[in-house]
Design a binder for these strands. Sequence first.
RNA 1: GCCCGGGUGACGGAAUGGUAGACGUGGCGGACUUAAAAUCCGUUGUCCUGAAAGGGCGUGUGGGUUCGAGUCCCACCCCGGGCACCA
Length: 929
Amino acid sequence: MAGKPNGWNRIADVTKRTRGYDHRQVEAHWQKVWEETGLYRSQVAWDRPKHYALTMLPYPSGDLHIGHWYAMTPSDARARYLRMKGYNVLFPMGFDAFGLPAENAAVQNNIHPWKWTYANIERMRGQLRSMGTMIDWEREAVSCTPEYYRWTEWFFSRLHEAGLAYRGEALVNWSPTLQTVLANEQVIDGKDERTGQPVIQRMMEQWFFRITDYVEELLDFSGLDWPEPIKAMQTNWIGRSPGARVRFPVEGAEPIEVFTTRPDTLHGATFMVLSPEHPLVDVLATSDQAEEVRNYRDQAARRSELQRTDLTREKHGVFTGGYALNPVTGGEIPVWIADYVLMSYGTGAIMAVPGEDTRDWEFADRYGLPVVHTVQPPDDFEGKAYEGDGPSINSDFLDGLYIAEAKPAMIDWLQTHGHGEAAVQYRLRDWLISRQRYWGSPIPVIYCQDGTIELVSDEDLPVELPEEVEFKTTGPSPLLTHDPFLKTTDSKGEAAVRETDTMDTFMCSSWYQLRYLSPGCDYAPFDPEEAAYWLPVDTYTGGAEHAVMHLLYTRFFTKALRDMGCFDDAKQVMSSHGRDPNGLFDEPMLMLRNQGQVLGEERRGDQVLVTVRRQDEDWVADSVQVVTTGSHPSFWEDGRLVGELLGRTEKVLTIASPNDDEDPITVRLAEAATVDVPSIEGTNTVNQLRHRIGVQRMSKSRGNVVNPDDLVEKYGADTVRTYLMFAFEWEKGGPWDSRGMRGAERFIADVWNLGRAEYHPDMIDEAATRALRRQAHAAIIKVGDDLESFSWNTAVAELMKLRNAMEQAWSARNVTSAAWQETLQILLLLLAPIAPHVTEEVWNHLGHPTSIHLQPWPEVDEEAAAEELVTMVVQVNGKVRARIEVPVEISSEDALDLALNQRNVARHVEDGEIRRVIDRRPKLLNLVV
RNA sequence: GCCCGGGUGACGGAAUGGUAGACGUGGCGGACUUAAAAUCCGUUGUCCUGAAAGGGCGUGUGGGUUCGAGUCCCACCCCGGGCACCA
């Protein structure tokens, strides 16, 4: 070997480096073995600690995308790690299989939703298997099966009996596009959150769940280890405002009730504003104002919610002609209507305090209504309405009190005089669960001829969806016209009709974590024996986009189930095993973590050479040619333009200006323009030009989607898993980087090579041996901590470091065989949760008879992990001047001596005297001169 | 407007108040090869004309606390997300 470069005697035969590891064969082989041996079956075992790890179940859209991998593989790795740590781990999977896309597919492709959904599930099961997860498939649950939705219906019945499900008329969000109503949570800025299509407000009779009964408990997150932003978003959504209800007497009519968060400003209430839809408007409107009021009302009704809540719109309204009495001043104040007051919040009426409220001030200013300040603004205050704190003025008995004292004082006064009382207002409304669609769980209700409502009896559940229905156009639900489904009889044997609405699919996903425990259970939604052992979910992972939908609903659901006694049997079983059930059924998931989003990769556009000429105001191109960047730097002169193609729509090109700070240049292609793309043979068209794709969400239309199946085929699941765990800060996500994949690929190949390499030491160096062992044992701690705390990227980094150390030891051949073997085993065991296939393969190759995934997490040898030598940093006045290798237990004197003997330290010290020594041995010494 | 996150090399990202940039990608130089790919070795914040030694400057901006600040405090700027005529 002498004379050969150092690299030559690196691991075995270098040409085998990637050729040797056949991920296709290895991964398929072990997936088969694991399945055949039931490696990932999880069974109740009361003598072992349990861990229920869950990731949000996917919608069976047809293909697993990279986001699923990003969400699931780290959870899988963590579940595997906990298993090695001695936990009995449950890691189930299923499908959230009801929902509109299946119906749309039915219309478009003339295929029954059931078939479409099932084909997709089949496909996705295969894709999930290719990940190499430890999913226990015996626990799979699919929400669109009658075995599943039987119990979704059953829960509806329980909720109805408990008074938590009711039918009510309300202004609801109707989507003309989807032909169904939607919950408030599914509407963002007046548009459907999934399709972005506008929704309109409609009065309709619908089914609701009384989630508002649980507001206060839903605001309490104590005992939950959830991300702060999610808690904040839920708190925000619930929108708790403490304040007071105040009644303003009206002559000859019932009083107008308002809600206010500022009862302390009551003396400044100089007028009132009602929502145009307010029932008292007709009573109050005087005959001479009646027409104006009616006109305004009609106008408001025609406006969408979106227009009405447009903040930039000026505030308009009309006077009703009526007056109310300010209960505290006794003064007569005019009552107006305006659409900035919403019927759906509070009482649909407000007391207007222009002195302390900007909105009211704008309104008062516009219509010349009086303003009375009730809070003393600071001297330099120049605004209009003063919303800050200060002593009360013009407020009789409140004068001098600050807001915090004035509020309760006013509430006291209101209560004593019967004009109002303390009240709390919430933004959260009841959960609207009716959907006018076919592909959802039926609502087990029938309407009798006498107008009463009956629940379908439990024995007759499930109410099954009829299969022979036709989907012709996206119109009303086929259930509406399907007589065999529709026509039934009530409990008295009389003819009756079924409810044709189905349930919001969030109902299905509100309890799926329970169904996983015993998906085959046919006498209850879940087996109490299983529930007692596995519940609650210990760690839950998924996207933050479900913050105020799924995550709020499932919390409500769990609390309602608890109060209806659905967990009583499970609690009893739990107690009998000596586990205290107290508090374990209040929340569905104890720990929650959100992954970020994998975005599309940035792609450079082609460098194009364009010949341009001026035509009127525009630039017109006669030829476009793709050139290589190097040979044609960007320039623009003499009718020739070279630059990166930033974008293209039809025949209009956007080309980067050669001067970075100038706007891009827009060029229109002439009809007869020639296009030349040298890399593509034949005649080229504009469609073959590649424009820049920026970092943005992946979508098929943008063409920036990465397909996991292709990646698995090319690199193997282990590499994809490792890359996804390594590449980003998990909770943040980021743009895909196809080159970054190379690092993971090399790492996995290196591990395989290290496992195959036959190590023979040459000159054993005790220090090097100890150093390698130290690093291995330090890694046990580091990787374990990181996996526990969701810091996947640093865990992988630590393992890569260990790989590097082993490669160095290999080429130096200076560590003992025992240390080599020990380190290799540690590397494999620590990597096993992340890359389950390659580690199993090497483990097996090393002659171990049982799976690596049944091994315990390696024990740390504290003595080996302890450092002997450490780099001591010597600072002078806080600046690093030297680094010295010192023994860990160096004495104060020795440390100072060594430090002062450093030439560079001495140089910086000699000008002054050492006033102080900051002694942080053995890591740091700071000399203050 | 209010409430959360977040601003660190070319890029993804590391850093219990104590060596800023771990680990990876990419770049550059070299080895191997007819060549390419793969692989291996070295190098890679920036400035002080090149190298060494040494030093200055560097974690959005400006102040402060501290022997010492990416980290703590104050003010501000920018980016992302949520909420928003919510009374």
